[in-house]
Design a protein around this nucleic acid. Structure first.
Length: 561
RNA sequence: AGCCUGGUGGUGUAAUGGUAGCACAGGAGUUUUUGGUACUCUUAGUUGGGGUUCGAGUCCCUGCCGGGCUGCCA
């Protein structure tokens, strides 16, 4: 993209603000962002939007972006998740260089800042139980009441807080609270808890700490320590911004600006960690990396490319209003990317035997097939052809409707890259099912063109019976049959809307050899069917298992309905 | 109920007082050895009501609707 294009391209509200700040010299014109996931689950498409935003802005404005794990709650967090997060961000194509941090790196500094707040009379140790605190907090319409421990002396607070740190009190018995305003209409400002007692091993700091800072007391300060200039987060943190600001101001430290944007929602999926966890735990899917999941690991296994996801993240836009992106946009991004890069191969999902009666028995020949019509540089390959081949059952109809261009009794079609064939005879088994076709071929049409200029409307794919490789093909479709499974109008649960056909396994598909040799994740197209890649199970189970990433657009399916 | 926040075609997103545009989806067609791709054309929109103004999606008032908030989660 040229500089001019970039100037012409309208900026979203966040980039507009970043640009203003940079041009006005704020933060010495530095731009520094961060992606701060909590390591309590796997990253999903919604995170991808945030990753692309944060790393993208840093790149566009000549700045930096950190990766920081927000590990302030050891109860839910695991190293397993932390590793997956790093892997996923890297796979998506972003580089945090040497700036990989943890909120727990700052526990010491955070503790010192808590001390400062106590000394300044802005924080106090509170003995209220969970329930008592809730009662005194008030509600949406009524102001809260001050804690009876609010006016403890600085000395007593200091002593108690040190004892909390030393592990002298049981979990839940005391908290450290900021002294702000119990009557604030923003409930987050009603003396929020900033430290709680948790006798819990932390994946990073072990048993060093018995108290842990809350999100509000850790996040903004972590941003501040790292010199973040723009702290981008989702809308639900909007009510927390006054708190974010309050801590930076009252601590007298570098004050990054928090800006909120609307999170990503998409049709036919669920995007919350909690709901995804349920899908995994209840066995509705095969795991976090199930190709039907909107997790980055699932999407990668399914055959999504980092490029397609980045393109998607850019195209969904950025604003503050709630949104529901149609999954079709994601599919479009994948197809566009794969169309230009995926090599073409031949395969049939539901094989139907075809014997070419006038083709010499025992003969076999190699035919030249184009690897990628979008890119001639990828050249051609040889595919073998002989008297017995298989075509897809979908490509034959005994009693075809109008405008059906494929094979039917007496009709002629082109076998892609091979010959024109005409269906002469239909053989059925005892159940009356078509089980074999007898065709004749035109030897003059080798390569797929007839010297007499005769045109044929239909072109179908095929595989050579002698050399085709058997494959299990997994056809994935949307996980839910309802576009908005979470917004059940009838009070139903999202799991009531699971699509029973979201996974169809075809055990006995046949593909040409070249389609059976690719490693997991390498995309290819089975012509006229869709984009595929080998599943990791291929390696462990030592057989060919293919995932359909996305089907090709099928305008015939549409018109024939 | 109070506070905060947001409302532009089916979906998403532009237009910062001056021709409502782009993308996806939908429809029609051209090309085609993938009923793919590409290309062309096309349907469809400013939440209601008032006001300011030569002129309002944009500013003001008011109604309506959506989202968020009463964790020692993030």
């Amino acid at each position: 993209m040229t500089e001019e294009d970039q100037n012409e391209k309208p900026l979203d509200f966040i980039r507009t603000k970043v640009k203003e700040d940079q041009e006005s010299g704020k933060n010495e014109s530095r731009v520094h962002t961060r992606f701060p996931p909590e390591p309590n689950g796997y990253l999903h498409l919604g995170h991808a939007k945030s990753i692309c935003l944060n790393f993208g802005i840093a790149k566009e404005f000549g700045g930096l972006c950190n990766l920081r794990l927000d590990d302030t709650n050891p109860v839910a967090e695991k190293t397993e998740y932390a590793e997956a997060i790093k892997e996923d961000v890297k796979w998506l194509g972003f580089d945090w260089e040497d700036r990989f941090f943890h909120a727990s790196d700052y526990f010491g500094q955070l503790f010192d800042w808590a001390i400062k707040l106590i000394r300044d009379g802005k924080a106090f140790v509170c003995d209220l139980s969970f329930e008592e605190m809730r009662e005194l907090r008030g509600n949406l319409t009524e102001p809260g009441k001050e804690s009876p421990f609010r006016e403890r002396s600085v000395e007593e607070n200091l002593e108690l807080f040190e004892k909390m740190k030393a592990g002298e009190f049981p979990e839940g018995s005391k908290t450290l609270r900021a002294k702000i305003d119990m009557s604030s209409p923003n409930i987050n400002l009603r003396d929020p808890v900033i430290y709680r007692i948790l006798h819990q091993e932390h994946p990073k700091t072990g048993d060093e700490w018995k108290i842990y800072p809350s999100y509000d007391f850790a996040h903004g300060q972590s941003d501040s320590i790292e010199g973040i200039t723009h702290s981008l987060c989702t809308l639900e943190f909007e009510h927390h911004r006054p708190l974010y600001d309050w801590f930076c101001e009252n601590l007298g430290i570098h004050h990054p600006q928090q800006i909120e944007f609307a999170r990503l929602n998409m049709t036919y999926v669920v995007m919350s960690k909690r709901k995804m966890l349920r899908l995994v735990e209840k066995g509705y899917v095969d795991g976090w990396d199930d190709p039907r999941m909107a997790t980055l690991q699932g999407m990668r296994r399914r055959g999504f490319t980092p490029e397609s996801i980045r393109e998607f993240a850019e195209r969904v836009g950025l604003a503050k209003r709630e949104n529901m992106i149609e999954v079709e946009l994601l599919e479009h991004c994948l197809r566009t990317d794969l169309n230009k890069r995926a090599p073409r191969r031949l395969g049939v999902l539901r094989p139907l035997k075809v014997v070419i009666e006038n083709y010499p028995e025992g003969k076999s020949e190699g035919l030249e097939a184009v690897n990628n019509p979008e890119n001639p540089d990828e050249g051609t390959r040889q595919v073998s052809f002989s008297r017995e081949i298989f075509i897809d059952r979908n490509d034959f109809m005994e009693d075809p409707p109008k405008k059906y261009f494929r094979l039917a009794p007496g009709s002629e079609v082109r076998l892609k890259y091979a010959y024109y064939v005409t269906c002469r005879e239909v053989i059925k088994d005892e159940d009356g099912e078509v089980c074999e076709l007898v065709c004749s071929y035109d030897p003059e049409s080798r390569g797929g063109d007839s010297p007499d200029g005769r045109k044929v409307r239909g072109t179908i794919q095929w595989v050579d019976a002698a050399t085709a490789v058997q494959a299990e093909v997994r056809l994935y479709d949307r996980l839910f049959s309802n576009p908005t499974p979470e917004q059940a109008e009838d009070g139903s649960d999202f799991t009531d809307h699971l699509n029973p056909d979201s996974l169809i396994k075809i055990k006995d598909a046949l593909v040409e050899q070249a389609a059976s040799l690719l490693s997991p994740g390498e995309p290819f197209q089975l012509e006229r069917i869709g984009y595929f890649c080998a599943d990791p199970d291929s390696t462990t189970e030592k057989r060919v298992i293919l995932n359909r990433s996305v089907a090709l657009r099928d305008s015939w399916a549409k018109t024939s309905k």
